[in-house]
Design a protein around this nucleic acid. Structure first.
Length: 429
RNA sequence: CGGGGAGUAGCGCAGCCUGGUAGCGCAUCUGUUUUGGGAACAGAGGGUCGCAGGUUCAAAUCCUGUCUCCCCGACCA
């Protein structure tokens, strides 16, 4: 992609009402635009990041035989009355009335709807287990939206739902999702820590959240030191249940509080095995050789649109964003400092085409801006590797490579740059 | 919802107290010169001062109402 063809409205100055680092950088790098309180448009650069994240999530869910579906954003009030959440969900639920005076709502979550879908088609124990997910906008009318997409009212969530024969099988599914989440966050270069969350309204249920520890986080979690030494994906179900890391709500309820440290964090995922709450209220009954039973259910969420902000929050410097390779909107930021020079231009065009041929995602700054502007835009946008073609190319036939993360600059003979680049990118991809 | 702040050009702000031609920086456009860290000079365009009402000869400025946004707390991915 050429910079001149890509809409990246970068800003030099911060908007006055922005307080969080990631929010500021997302606005200034032209990733997002606020429409109204807690509601955002994703501009091309931001949407590219979002799609990277979504692609990874889809990939790993599909591998795990979780079936992707797409449920509507608008739901009928009927099913929420059936589950008795229409009244209890409160003002967080955005309620809408259509022209026929029918009560609708913008879905804050989809347990009711997925239960209705399960009930209609799943009649036999032979059809279980069954796992579904979808990636869709949600609306929760937060009391106070803030920090950009970190706490938005409309946001994109990946929510998955499972139907199992009974609690034992439900726990196996839960354990699978636990490991699936670790795999996903690991692959997104996000070092999350799993923490135990309070069981819900029904006793004996299981719930974990996945947190990214950052100073500016809104959540607080409590963890014993040895938890950090564990390989979370090696844990048995019993071990993960006994993991000594807790959300603040959970921590309040435990007795032995010594040995824990508290951390500020951002919640990125939440898995929850809640049992037959919804199969009960919807009378979702399945036949088996041992008679009729209500499927055991779980739900599993990832705050998709929060992830870019969370990543920026822990990966930035005074110049801008530093994208991890797996989420970065591009891999290489090619900068032509001498756009009026024919040789330099031809060289950049050639490298640009070669990179595209090699399927290396490249943003090529071909604009007639000053060097300073190009450098600062590049640092702000935060692509992992910058290739600079300028004076050194004219003098010594050299171009330089700058690692965004540490700003180290290395010069290469221009004919070697492509192969060197492929080597360097190959290291961690 | 309680407490605090703010709405003036695309963005950041000054002007308001003490009413009298709507301003500055950045951005944009034109031209010339620049080109390894947000270039320089010269010129240009752009605002019914959030909205409604009131006071006044006269309102960005004073009064009343209203809408919106942000910040601090309790909810959440």
């Amino acid at each position: 992609m050429k910079f001149s063809n890509f809409f990246i409205p970068t800003l030099k100055e911060s908007p006055s009402d922005v307080k969080m680092r990631s929010h500021d950088l997302m606005i200034r790098s032209g990733m997002i635009r606020q429409e109204t309180s807690g509601i955002y448009s994703w501009l091309p650069l931001g949407f590219r990041v979002l799609k990277k994240i979504i692609n990874k999530i889809e990939l790993f869910h599909d591998i795990d035989n979780v079936n992707q579906i797409l449920m509507p954003t608008i739901q009928s009030s009927e099913i929420w009355k059936t589950s008795e959440r229409y009244d209890t969900y409160g003002k967080e639920m955005l309620r809408i009335t259509d022209r026929n005076n029918k009560d609708l709502l913008y879905g804050p979550t989809n347990e009711e709807m997925i239960t209705v879908i399960g009930k209609q088609y799943i009649k036999s124990y032979k059809s279980l287990p069954r796992k579904f997910y979808h990636i869709q906008s949600k609306f929760r009318d937060e009391i106070r939206p803030r920090f950009g997409v970190m706490r938005a009212r409309e946001f994109i969530m990946k929510d998955a739902y499972s139907f199992d024969l009974d609690e034992t099988n439900g726990e196996i599914t839960y354990h699978d999702f636990f490991n699936l989440y670790l795999k996903i966050f690991n692959n997104l270069d996000i070092p999350v820590v799993p923490v135990r969350a309070p069981s819900g309204e029904i006793g004996g249920n299981l719930s974990h959240e996945f947190h990214l520890i950052v100073e500016s986080g809104e959540s607080e979690i409590f963890i014993k030191d040895d938890v950090f030494n564990k390989k979370y994906d090696d844990l048995s179900l019993k071990e993960l249940i006994n993991l000594e890391s807790y959300t603040d709500d959970y921590f309040k309820k435990i007795n032995e509080k010594s040995g824990f440290n508290s951390f500020k964090s951002i919640e990125l995922g939440h898995i929850f095995l809640f049992g037959s709450k919804y199969s009960d209220s919807f009378n979702f009954v399945v036949d088996s050789h041992e008679g009729k039973f209500k499927p055991f259910m779980g739900s599993y969420g990832i705050g998709v649109s929060r992830i870019p902000a969370a990543v920026i929050e822990y990966s930035n410097d005074s110049n801008g964003i530093i994208w991890p390779k797996n989420i970065s909107p591009f891999m290489v930021h090619l900068i032509n400092l001498l756009h009026d020079d024919t040789e330099c231009l031809e060289f950049c065009e050639k490298i640009y085409k070669d990179l595209i041929k090699k399927k290396i995602e490249v943003i090529y700054d071909d604009r007639s801006e000053s060097p300073g502007k190009k450098f600062s835009d590049a640092d702000l946008i935060g692509i992992p590797v910058q290739i600079i073609c300028g004076k050194a190319f004219k003098k010594h036939n050299e171009v330089s490579l700058i690692h965004r993360a540490n700003k180290k600059e290395t010069y290469f003979k221009s004919e070697n740059i492509l192969n060197s680049l492929i080597d360097i990118l190959g290291e961690n991809v």
